[in-house]
Amino acid sequence: MSKISITINDEPYKVESGQTIMEACKEHNIKIPSMCHFDGLTDVGACRLCLVEIEGQSKLLPSCTTQVEPNQKIRTHSDRLSGHRQMITELFFSERNHVCAVCVANGNCELQDLATEVGMKHVRFPYLFQECEVDASHAMFVIDHNRCIMCTRCVRVCSEVEGAHNWDVKNRGYKVRIISDFDTPWGESESCTSCRKCVEVCPTGSLWSKDKAQGQSKKNPQMIKDLIEKRKVNL
């Protein structure tokens, strides 16, 4: 693939054409906050945390789904972007019921890390206090919709890596929910292979394993990334 010249935060770089801005940044150790992106899975641009400024464009664009172009001038960090990232994070917290103190993922949660990363001090928006279901019907796992941020990593890892496509999405707006099979209890799923991949990629305590007590849940997303790499090699 051919190399093209771009500018990121006023520094010139040579990057592969066809790469996304996020990939190019990662290669050059420029960290952009992200949540729905997961290495090796199709990007969907759902969370909007990875938005960047591109000179000549009034709109902010998600770096995970926008490709690099010759002579592009990109800005990954600015006051404007920080403001948006902080707001998005606060909205995650206000939309459902995140109670870190009693969550399995406490201390091992990407949403908590994100809040620290973007400097969230408190939530400026009113909480929705939506009533969300806890589905514990699966013999080994639980999905707690209170803690889901709709990144859809579980949907994609199940479909693209395991090939089972147990997970899907229903509704729109704040009523959007992850569903199992055709919106049936997870324990009754005919497609779920109980492979646990969704649990490992879930950034929050939404998907968790019944054999882990509070504070014992250590997710291993790297294992799934390695698996994706290994499967590519075998192809």
Partner: peptide, 14 residues
Amino acid sequence: EGRYYTEMPVITPR
């Protein structure tokens, strides 16, 4: 009510 039972040792001390 509605929580998974193994969560209680962490919720109730609060």
